[in-house]
Write a protein that binds this DNA or RNA. Structure first.
Lengths: 258, 258
DNA sequence: CCCCAAACTTGATCTAAATCACTACCCTAC
DNA sequence: GTAGGGTAGTGATTTAGATCAAGTTTGGGG
């Protein structure tokens, strides 16, 4: 109901967007037209339900590489759905012992960390030029109370984090960790309609290493090692998985041979 | 030496467990009479809402030490609230490289891992004689749709897992990890009305080590080292935190001095 | 087009923690 | 009680991966 009005509001009120060549169309895109709808919150919503959801999702923000979407301590009121690009969530500590806790791809929701205390617990930083949809949390909850499918989907999305293999296994060694991360990314790219065996990493080696609890040099070495073993072909950010099965073996099972 | 608190602890813990031949009373205990209500799902529910929640929570199960509540692959239909005792969630892998992903104390909910796929992703094993309340998931969702406070509480509970410091920091070393675990347990005991500086661990050194991604010997050594430094007093499962501040320093900041 | 800084790779060395090996200390059951 | 298995503590040794120290590639800006 408030589609047009909203667009105008956006245009007038959000300064950071004006610097980018954003079209009205870009801001207008509704959930029902979004190719990510089947991954994101709108899963299995009826058209008019989709419309309700769409009505509370007002803004589309665009961030350049390195820009922060929110910081530790920022007060919480919205979740953010990645529309394009990617993000990292990073928990800073004294001494630079910061820890990257997640990477986010299109269709994934950020901000759950803040529900507990109403303050964000991590910094969310764009890994490349990216856009996000703002989802007011209170509105979402209210809507979820009326739309069982939406409630279920929200809870399902949150339950991802409870799946052991969406977290790094602390009892795995370096190559298992790298292999697991590559497989996890592969499957997430595949879900989004991209190739499962060939993709570009948006994060640096350092980001990967930090996420996995390794040194960047170690990640680098494992990449070259896996290249020598014809499991991967790596060219900077470009990953080509040559032997998927073997990568799976590396990721979890680590066959007896040796 | 440890006067009232320990007695309370005893009182709260042991009696319920010894009632192995479950009485009607035991099964009947309603949420409104449960001392854990303020931690568990019933937070901030009105009496009649509490009543509705109570009406779907049917069974109380009792498990002895080492018994499993559910296993990987078990089909999902219920969440479980720990009523007394404690549990570990463990993801088994080939080669015994299993990973303990969580410990659960009274008032905490288990089973979220299974929402995604309708199958449990971990084994839940009692660390001591323990009891749980079964909460049918579909019933809970339905109720949550009608009771905003319940919905909010469910989502708040799930959001715990997104808090970076409810997970082990991968870029921390052995003593930081042990210190963090002790502080986390301390705070959870305190929430439950027990002492924050003196408590009994229900898990073995091996469980702790596995959870933290360390060797049991390392955990053992760190305990003795922290004893020598007068930070802790450890007697098998019995922990006494002597220098809380110093333990916090160990856990996250690791001050320059030394 | 070249320069420079950042990102990445590679090799040499070091070290925190794993592993191995053994002793000590509970509990629980005869 | 005491026998015996499981759990914990401690020392000696090894090792995976960190750290240190160069190179090398790359891409963006002047």
């Amino acid at each position: 109901m408030e589609s047009t009005l909203n667009d105008e509001q956006q245009k007038n009120r959000t300064p950071q967007m004006s610097e980018l060549p954003t079209t009205c169309k870009e801001f207008r895109q509704a959930c029902e037209n979004c190719s990510l709808a089947k991954l994101c919150l709108p899963v299995s919503l009826a058209p008019q339900e989709m419309e309700s959801l769409n009505s509370i999702i007002k803004k589309r923000l665009i961030l350049e590489r390195g820009k922060t979407l929110f910081n530790v301590g920022d007060s919480f009121s919205k979740l953010y759905a990645v529309h394009s690009g990617s993000f990292k969530a990073i928990m800073p500590t004294y001494y630079g012992k910061e820890q990257i806790t997640s990477f986010y791809l299109p269709g994934e929701l950020m901000g759950f960390d803040a529900i507990q205390s109403d303050q964000h617990q991590v910094n969310a930083i764009a890994l490349e030029t990216s856009s996000v949809c703002e989802i007011p949390f209170n509105g979402l909850l209210q809507l979820a109370g009326n739309i069982p499918n939406l409630q279920r989907q929200l809870i399902k999305i949150m339950s991802h984090k409870f799946n052991p293999d969406s977290n790094v296994n602390l009892n795995s060694n370096a190559d298992e960790r790298v292999a697991s991360l590559l497989l996890a990314l592969s499957s997430r790219f595949a879900q989004r309609g991209f190739s499962a065996v060939q993709f570009n990493l948006s994060m640096s080696r350092q980001d990967m290493a930090n996420y996995l609890g390794l040194a960047t040099e170690t990640v680098s070495r494992i990449f070259t090692q896996m290249q020598e073993e014809k499991i991967l072909q790596v060219n900077r950010k470009e990953i080509h998985i040559l032997d998927f099965r073997q990568l799976q073996v590396r990721a979890c099972v680590k066959v007896a041979s040796e």
